[in-house]
Computed example of a mutant assay.
Amino acid sequence: MEEYSYPIDVEWTTDEIIDVVAFFEAVEKAHDEGVTAAELDEKYRKFKSVVPGKAEEKTVFKEFKSNSGLESYAAVKLLKDADEDDVIRI
């Protein structure tokens, strides 16, 4: 995996930053080798506890895409129709 600059809000706690970065690492994994739906779902739920609003989520996803070229929305979209044992690849 490459090292990317992750979108971070200075008001987030250390634990919240860890949860957001873990979600984006799972998105990277989905692009690189695939990630189980269960793992991505767990990380996305924690991400949503930090970034609950749709508008803020879009902004954070857009910032990550501009830094990495990776599409977070595509991973989340595939997750919606996946069983937990499915492997999500983008």
Rank of each mutant, 00 (worst) to 15 (best):
E84Q: 01
V21E: 13
G34E: 05
K58V: 03
R45G: 04
E56C: 05
K80E: 15
E25N: 14
D41Q: 03
D83A: 11
K43N: 02
F24L: 13
L78K: 14
D83T: 09
K54T: 15
K65E: 08
K62A: 15
Y4D: 08
A74Q: 11
T59Q: 09
E56D: 13
T36S: 15
R89N: 05
R89K: 12
L79Y: 06
A30K: 00
G34V: 05
H31Y: 13
I17C: 11
G53H: 12
K62T: 14
L40V: 00
E2P: 12
E33I: 13
G53P: 06
E11F: 15
A37C: 02
Y4R: 14
F47I: 08
E56H: 09
L78A: 14
D81E: 15
V35I: 14
V27N: 06
Y4C: 12
E56S: 11
E56P: 13
S66G: 07
A82F: 01
Y73G: 10
K62V: 07
K62E: 15
K46T: 03
K62R: 14
F24I: 05
A22G: 06
A55E: 15
A82L: 03
G53N: 13
A75S: 07
V27Y: 11
T14A: 12
A74K: 09
K29L: 14
D19S: 13
E2H: 11
A74E: 12
T13H: 08
G34P: 05
I17E: 12
A30G: 14
P7G: 10
H31K: 01
V27S: 05
D86R: 07
E39S: 08
H31D: 05
A22D: 12
E2M: 12
P7R: 15
K29C: 12
K58A: 10
E56I: 12
F47Y: 15
P52M: 01
A55C: 03
A75Y: 00
D9Y: 09
I18T: 12
D83Q: 08
D41C: 00
V20H: 06
A38F: 05
D41F: 01
L78E: 13
V87W: 02
Y44V: 01
D81R: 05
S72V: 14
P7L: 09
E84G: 00
V60E: 02
E56V: 14
T14Y: 13
A30Q: 04
K29H: 07
V51E: 02
E3Y: 08
L40E: 01
S5W: 06
A30L: 02
L79W: 06
D15R: 11
D19I: 03
T59R: 11
N67K: 14
E63S: 13
V60G: 03
V60F: 08
V27I: 11
L78V: 02
V27K: 04
L40D: 01
A26V: 03
T13W: 08
E3P: 00
A38C: 02
F61V: 04
E16T: 01
Y73P: 00
E63F: 04
D86H: 12
P7M: 07
V51L: 08
L78Y: 13
R45Q: 10
E71Q: 07
V10A: 11
T59Y: 12
F64L: 00
A75L: 04
V60L: 09
N67P: 06
A38K: 12
I90R: 00
V35Q: 07
K65N: 08
D41Y: 03
